[in-house]
Design a protein around this nucleic acid. Structure first.
Length: 482
RNA sequence: GGGGGUGUAGCUCAGUCGGUAGAGCAACGGCCUUUUAAGCCGUGGGUCGAGGGUUCGAGUCCCUCCGCCCUCACCA
């Protein structure tokens, strides 16, 4: 539909100008433009005592004021904005080009760096080079692009018309860079493991299925890199991490996108307490770069990241917020019924977890480590030595969102194999495949280790006060338009 | 999948009780050599998301469908 659209009056007008430019011998799509300095750098070197500096800049026209024989243009590049003054007298033949400029075009100008009567730093152009004629108009200059659907579908327009959106994605880049540096400083090696898995493992989620023609096998887009990163532990990469996409074929919401970015890391000879220390240190570092007092607003609420963060056991939080012990099966069942949880066909552990998710998680606003999960929920986790029903696992909650998930990794191949068997029982065929190779890897010996996963998108949401995951993913998944 | 909201000009938005479809920006034409979201004069621009229904008459009321947003459910 988009392709068949007949040009509207706006596009027609610009196409007509484009044709005029071609007839004048001007390439409306320009080419390499050498010598342009960053606009901010140009503005910075303005010197009222030397208004004879010749400078060269390029950018997109975001505002245009036509005063007759003089046109003022606000140019923007990656560094900022700067005014260009185009006068009929100074441009000569190129004045004809100037008169055909529109909002959204890219141009390059060269000329003297000066000021206007009102003090605005301005490049008084001697030459004007058209670098790209835009044949569709930008959104309204006051409000930018507001329509949420269009913002996601045409993120390129969102980015150039809403400066705050660009700033958020620049923040995202900086955050991820800081995470990389933090981990590299601690001796973690960044690796890339397969995105296409013959067996979808490392998490319980419905995978996307694809097919390799030559091998004639189905493959799954990975739901987690965990099992491959642990193979690397076996291989001797004692500190390893990966920041990359996971794919889960599940619901879409303000906290879920089918593809999302996860940072997973593994540290040999560590445990989940080390992972808590590391998580707290990392996130506090990120927060400290954006906040003087370790507080950041999210969704209209102030979140206090001041360490140390509480580390409370699952059982403790359950008793505190639910009002009964999780071991009290009768009370737990009664509570479940009062929450309208269909508990009849569920194991006690599952019922407890349902109640936990309904009752406890939305109370966890400031960063909180929930530790020591029921072992039955954690097939990849080592059990506590003093209590085999409890797994050495934590989840980090901030603003009721699960931000991190970590364990002391299970490295006993026999226990791992048994856990897989229990997990596979009763599951759908597509998800029920034993990863024999992973068990084999464990048999060669995986050092005891702490492992951690941090949901990067959700973390960026918190750090940039973005209420939806779509606001921190450049191209969120949308239903295609027909 | 359930519930709620929303869809009007390129963009941002009004549109009352059912009675000729509106504004700003943008566009087009004109004036203007120091503007600052430039200003002034003039002109054009609509499948009111799609389809059906009620009505003398529907942007408005009803039904179906579609997109998007929120929310619940689902979701180690």
């Amino acid at each position: 539909m988009e392709h068949d659209r007949t040009p509207d009056e706006y596009e027609q007008a610009r196409l007509a100008k484009l044709e005029q430019l071609r007839q004048m011998g001007v390439d409306p799509y320009g080419g390499k433009f050498s010598g342009a300095e960053a606009l901010q750098a140009i503005a910075d070197k303005y010197d009222p005592n030397h208004e004879d500096q010749i400078v060269c800049g390029a950018g997109r026209i975001i505002l245009l004021r036509d005063i007759g024989k003089l046109i003022f243009i606000t140019l923007r590049d990656r560094t900022g904005t700067l005014q260009a003054g185009l006068s009929k007298k100074m441009l000569g033949d190129a004045w004809a080009v100037a008169r055909l400029l529109d909002l959204g075009d890219h141009i390059g100008v060269e000329g003297m760096l000066g000021r206007t009567k009102t003090g605005e730093i301005t490049i008084w152009a001697n030459t004007l080079t058209l670098l790209c004629k835009a044949t569709l108009p930008p959104p309204e200059k006051w409000h930018g692009l507001q329509d949420v659907e269009l913002r996601y579908r045409r993120r390129y327009v969102d980015l150039f018309s809403n400066p705050q959106v660009l700033a958020t994605f620049q923040d995202r880049v900086a955050i991820i860079q800081t995470i990389r540096e933090f981990l590299q400083d601690r001796g973690f090696l960044e690796v890339e493991t397969p995105m296409m898995h013959p067996i979808a493992g490392g998490a319980a989620a419905r995978p996307f299925i694809t097919h390799h023609n030559t091998l004639d096998i189905d493959l799954y887009l990975r739901i987690a890199p965990e099992l491959y990163l642990k193979r690397l532990l076996v291989g001797g990469l004692e500190r390893v991490f990966e920041i990359n996409r996971n794919f889960r074929n599940e619901g879409i919401s303000t906290q879920h996108n089918p593809e999302f970015t996860m940072c997973e890391l593994y540290q040999a000879y560590g445990d989940y307490h080390d992972m808590m220390d590391l998580t707290e240190e990392l996130i506090c570092l990120l927060v400290s770069r954006r906040s003087e007092d370790m507080k950041l607003d999210f969704n209209g609420r102030s979140i206090d990241y001041t360490p140390p963060w509480p580390r409370k056991t699952y059982a403790e939080l359950f008793a505190e917020h639910v009002g009964c012990e999780m071991s009290d099966s009768a009370a737990v069942r009664q509570k479940a019924r009062s929450l309208e949880i269909g508990e009849a066909n569920m194991d006690d552990t599952v019922v407890v977890n349902e109640i936990f998710e309904h009752t406890v998680e939305d109370k966890l606003i400031n960063p909180t480590f929930v530790i020591d999960y029921p072992a039955a929920l954690c097939p990849l986790t080592r059990r506590r030595k003093d209590n085999p029903n409890v797994a050495e696992r934590f989840e980090l909650f901030i603003s009721s969102m699960e931000i991190g998930n970590a364990y002391t990794e299970l490295n006993d191949p026999a226990v791992q194999e048994e856990n897989f068997r229990l997990q596979l029982r009763g599951q759908e065929e597509t998800m029920a495949t034993m990863d024999e190779d992973f068990i084999q890897a464990l048999k060669y010996g995986m050092p005891p280790a702490g492992g951690l996963g941090i949901g990067i998108d959700r973390l960026v949401m918190l750090l940039t006060d973005s209420p939806s995951i779509r606001d921190v993913i450049l191209f969120p998944q949308m239903r295609p338009t027909e």
